[in-house]
Simulated scan of single mutants.
Amino acid sequence: MNILAGIIFLFSIVSDQLTKLWAVNQLKDGESIKLIGNFLRFTYAENKGAAFSILQNQLWFFIIATVVMLIILGYMFFMAKNLTPVSRLSISMIAGGAIGNFIDRLRLGHVVDFIDVRFGSFYNFPIFNIADSFVVCGTILMIILILFNKFEKSDING
């Protein structure tokens, strides 16, 4: 299962960086590309903040916070012997997504976002990227595992 976690980790980083490269080359100076009417489109955006564009222009905060979070996730992944295989997958998803956005912040000073979801005129969801998707899905998975007491293996002797 650690092999699958490693594949997920690498896939999240590579797919994120390749899709962002595509977005920069195809969308930066152009218009949005509509995929499903006005519901789903690709629109180039540069995010100098976090989710929902909060904490704009706090580059060093995000660099330090990401390094600290990656150290904690790495410690959990490699040092905790009682994690379930699915817990390791959730950690891999979060870490891979975090590294994808970390690369952008170091290289560009901002994160490239391009996935644009709109719910008619009712709600325009903040533009996001593949890395964000991995972080969110991995976090949701981790929360579910914790809530249902499946994050760690039960100790038979305890």
Rank of each mutant, 00 (worst) to 15 (best):
S32E: 12
I33D: 02
K34L: 04
K34W: 03
K34F: 08
I36Q: 03
G37V: 01
F39G: 04
L40Y: 01
L40R: 01
R41H: 12
R41D: 07
Y44H: 08
Y44L: 01
A45W: 06
A45F: 13
E46R: 14
E46G: 05
E46H: 08
E46N: 07
K48M: 04
G49S: 02
G49R: 04
A51S: 09
A51L: 04
A51E: 07
L55H: 04
N57F: 06
Q58L: 04
W60G: 06
F61P: 08
F61M: 10
F62S: 00
F62D: 01
I63S: 09
I63R: 14
I64D: 10
T66H: 14
T66Y: 11
V68T: 15
V68W: 12
M69N: 15
I72K: 13
Y75S: 14
M76H: 15
M76S: 14
F77M: 11
F77W: 12
F77K: 07
F78I: 03
F78V: 03
M79R: 15
M79E: 12
A80L: 15
N82K: 13
L83Q: 04
T84F: 03
P85H: 12
V86I: 12
V86C: 04
V86P: 00
S87F: 06
R88P: 06
R88S: 07
R88N: 12
L89R: 00
L89I: 11
S90M: 15
S90F: 10
S90N: 05
S90P: 08
I91S: 04
S92K: 05
S92N: 02
S92A: 15
M93Q: 08
M93H: 07
I94C: 03
I94F: 02
A95P: 13
G97Q: 10
A98I: 05
A98Y: 01
N101K: 10
F102I: 03
F102C: 05
I103F: 02
D104T: 10
D104M: 09
R105D: 03
R105Y: 04
R105E: 03
R107E: 11
R107T: 14
L108C: 05
G109M: 06
G109T: 05
G109E: 06
G109F: 05
H110W: 11
H110K: 13
V112G: 01
D113Y: 08
D113A: 08
F114L: 07
D116I: 02
D116H: 02
